[in-house]
Design a protein around this nucleic acid. Structure first.
Lengths: 169, 169
DNA sequence: AGTGAAATCGTGGCCCC
DNA sequence: GGGGCCACGATTTCACT
């Protein structure tokens, strides 16, 4: 039953432009039924949207780096994410536990751009930076093992199907 | 001219299922012309493919962590990426400069799963791990500022296509 | 929830500019 | 490289189950 939803999500993560016709064939249902299920997956928020995957090399952004940041003055209000949002070189911003406050993923054209972006990060958010350069990317954005909650991300009650439950306490 | 390619890539990263009709309207070209340009962008490798964006919360993978790994015995051959590829919880694997050898992005259902995955990483690749838990994600996978090379990443005149990027020296 | 059919619209090849 | 045309296929809705 929801086996089919898993198959649909897996197929659409592999190829986001799959037609409903092809999708229907893959999962062994009629076109209408598949269409209906996709609509439900979208409005439940399981599928958030669709994007084209771009080659960062082709976009002249061959250099990737992780930048861990820490406020220069920890007593100041911490709004680094919004202060940094204007920098297009920042792909992602994670708030993390541990010694650092945030971990940024940045993509630039080369070392000189990285230097410039680091300076902009430091001055924009009043932080210190610790940078880890990515040398190569064996794999990235692999499709997750799809294990659907029966009714989406709602109801915080029961533990889920797999792996005996995320944190009981 | 290539201003239009930038607009196309930007539009398709924002919505990968945009029809050529809508795309044509957005960039102010005919449907045929847009179709032609998208085909070229695809075969030049600027656009690698299309995927559905899924909510990891909805997929019951609410816990994200970065795992830095380092070989237990640095004299052994280093094939950690292939030894770890079978673990579906690993979203991405980056080879990095710095103290660690690789940085992994993992997504799991909760702390207990994280513990299990860390054990599997250590035993599968014979490495030590240092884990940074993600508390929240202010933003992720933002569309890059699109700056197209005139003819894609091809022919760098002697150097190979990859990493021949822009360090003017 | 799934099916099949029907109207609408998008797609993908061709030819002309 | 852009525009327009046209046959085919995909999308989307509806009545039925």
């Amino acid at each position: 039953m929801e086996e089919i939803d898993r198959a649909i999500v897996a197929a659409l993560t592999a190829d986001g432009r799959l037609s409903y016709t092809d999708l229907a064939e893959k999962v062994g249902l009629s076109v209408s039924a598949v269409h209906q299920r996709v609509r439900r997956l979208e409005q439940r928020g399981v599928i958030n949207g669709y994007t084209a995957r771009v080659s960062f090399e082709a976009l002249d952004l061959p250099l990737t780096a992780f930048v861990a940041i820490r406020p220069f003055d920890p007593s100041q209000p911490d709004d680094a994410p919004v202060r940094l949002a204007h920098l297009p070189e920042i792909d992602s911003c994670y708030s993390v536990a541990g010694e650092d406050f945030y971990l940024l993923l940045v993509r630039v054209a080369g070392p000189l751009d990285l230097e410039r972006v680091l300076q902009e990060i430091r001055t924009s958010a009043n932080v210190t930076t610790r940078t880890t350069v990515v040398l190569s990317t064996p794999y990235e954005h692999r499709p997750p093992k799809v294990a659907l909650d029966p009714a989406g991300p709602h109801r915080v009650r029961g533990a889920s199907a797999e792996s005996a439950g995320s944190q009981p306490g």
